[in-house]
C-alpha cells in the first residue's frame, strides 16, 4: 500500500512537471538560464513536431514563448541605432511590431526539422549594468555551435536582448543591415522590406 502511494505520488509529480513543460510558463522569479532553457525546450519541441505541423501552427506555438523571452522594445531601439530618436511614436510602435513578427517567423522557418539536436546550458556570467550572459551550445549530428544569450531584467523578469550564435551577434548583423536601408531608402521602405520577409519566410525562394 505504501509502495502504491509512493508510485502514485511519483506519477502525479511526473504529470505536474510534464504539464509545466507543456505550458512553457516561466515563473516570475526564474533565472536567466531558466528563460533560455525554456526557449530551447520550445524550439526542440517545435522541431520534433515539425513533420506534423505546418508553418502557421509552429508559429502559434513559438509566438507566446518568444514574445515573453525577448525584450523587443530594447532590441528594436538598439537595432535602429542613431535612427531611433528620429522616429515618431507611431513609427516606433510599427517597427517593434513588425520586427517581433519577423523574429518569430525567422525562428519558425529556421527550426523546421529535427535530427537529434540538443541544447546544453553551460553557465552564466555577470556583465555590466546587471546584464547576464548565458552560455549554451547547440549539439547537432556533426558539430557543436556555441549559442550565447545576453539578458537583462525588465520588471522582475529576465529577457533576452541579444543572441550570439557561433560568434556572430544577431543585433550587430541587423543593426548594420537595417541602418544601410534607413540611410539609403528610409523608414517606409525598411518596414515594407521587413513585411516582405515575413510573407516569404517558410517558403522556398
Amino acid at each position: 500500500m505504501r509502495k502504491f502511494i509512493g508510485t502514485k505520488l511519483t506519477l502525479i509529480l511526473f504529470l505536474l512537471s510534464f504539464q509545466s513543460v507543456l505550458a512553457n510558463a516561466v515563473p516570475a522569479n526564474s533565472t536567466p538560464s531558466d528563460v533560455v532553457e525554456n526557449l530551447h525546450q520550445t524550439l526542440i519541441q517545435v522541431m520534433k513536431e515539425a513533420k506534423d505541423l505546418d508553418f502557421s501552427s509552429r508559429y502559434k506555438i513559438l509566438e507566446p514563448v518568444i514574445n515573453e523571452s525577448f525584450d523587443f522594445d530594447t532590441i528594436a531601439r538598439i537595432v535602429m541605432g542613431r535612427y531611433w530618436k528620429k522616429l515618431d511614436d507611431q513609427q516606433k510602435a510599427e517597427f517593434i511590431d513588425t520586427f517581433s513578427r519577423l523574429s518569430i517567423s525567422t525562428y519558425t522557418a529556421q527550426f523546421d526539422s529535427f535530427s537529434g539536436e540538443t541544447f546544453e546550458v553551460l553557465g552564466d556570467k555577470e556583465m555590466k549594468k546587471g546584464r547576464i550572459l548565458v552560455k549554451t551550445k547547440l549539439i547537432t549530428d556533426d558539430r557543436v555551435v556555441p549559442f550565447n544569450y545576453v539578458l537583462h531584467p525588465v520588471k522582475d523578469r529576465w529577457r533576452i536582448i541579444n543572441v550570439i550564435a557561433d560568434g556572430i551577434s544577431d543585433l550587430s548583423l541587423k543593426r548594420s543591415d537595417y541602418s544601410t536601408i534607413m540611410k539609403t531608402e528610409g523608414f517606409d521602405e525598411l518596414v515594407r522590406k521587413l513585411r516582405e520577409k515575413i510573407k516569404s519566410s517558410g517558403k522556398e525562394p
Partner: peptide
C-alpha cells in the same frame, strides 16, 4: 537617451 554609440556591449561577440 542612448544614441548610436550606446549599448555597444550588448553587441558583444563571445
Amino acid at each position: 537617451y542612448p544614441d548610436d554609440s550606446s549599448a555597444e556591449d550588448i553587441l558583444i561577440i563571445e
